[in-house]
């Protein structure tokens, strides 16, 4: 089909492409001049141009299948989809927030209880490695301990008996309650 356009210098395809671009107004000044020269001088080229123009006009006028759906119904369907998606997004956001809240609450709960255990574990791990003397610093004497250190029954220094012999010691032990 295009070989009829071939002029020895330009292939038929090159000329056809240039003609097509010319029809669309997509050529530069020199190309336009060249195409217009061909149109003047070459009847075959001119006929090709007319066919191309006819096709160009025809494509624009291709009838469309009739639209049976009224525009209001079409619009309602579009708006219904928009509303539906908006509700879905809202639910996703609310649902996401709920899940996030539950996760956060769970995290706080876990941190609270696991955190205190962790502190106890730290304390356990520190104490055994401490030197015994540090206990006296860490543990304050309590009244109970003071009581244990004090004698329950006040013994008057005047009544104190200093054992002088083995027999005296036995007497001291036997004094009072029967064993």
């Amino acid at each position: 089909m295009l070989d009829v356009l071939d002029d020895g210098q330009n292939s038929g395809l090159e000329k056809f492409e240039l003609l097509s671009a010319y029809l669309d107004g997509e050529v530069n000044a020199s190309e336009r001049k060249q195409v217009e020269l061909w149109l003047q001088e070459d009847a075959v080229f001119k006929a090709m141009y007319n066919k191309m123009r006819g096709m160009h006009a025809a494509i624009e006028q291709i009838p469309m299948p009739p639209v049976t759906e009224p525009i209001n119904k079409f619009a309602d369907e579009v708006f219904a989809k928009i509303d539906q998606r908006r509700q879905l997004r809202f639910l996703k956001v609310v649902g996401g927030a709920c899940v996030a809240g539950m996760v956060a609450a769970g995290a706080v709960f876990t941190a609270t209880f696991q955190g205190s255990n962790h502190q106890m574990q730290m304390a356990k791990s520190v104490l055994p490695t401490s030197v015994p003397n540090s206990l006296s610093i860490l543990v304050k004497p309590t009244p109970l301990m003071v009581a244990l250190n004090d004698s329950i029954v006040q013994i008057s220094p005047n009544k104190a008996v200093t054992p002088k012999s083995k027999a005296d010691i036995i007497d001291l032990l036997d004094d009072g309650d029967d064993l």
């Binding site: 056809f16 492409e17 097509s20 671009a21 066919k51 096709m55």
Partner: peptide, 19 residues
């Protein structure tokens, strides 16, 4: 540019009986 030209060429060939 090439695709448009070739598409036109093909359409013209196919519909040459009408054009």
């Amino acid at each position: 540019k090439s695709r448009i030209a070739r598409a036109r060429l093909r359409l013209q060939e196919q519909l040459s009986g009408y054009l």
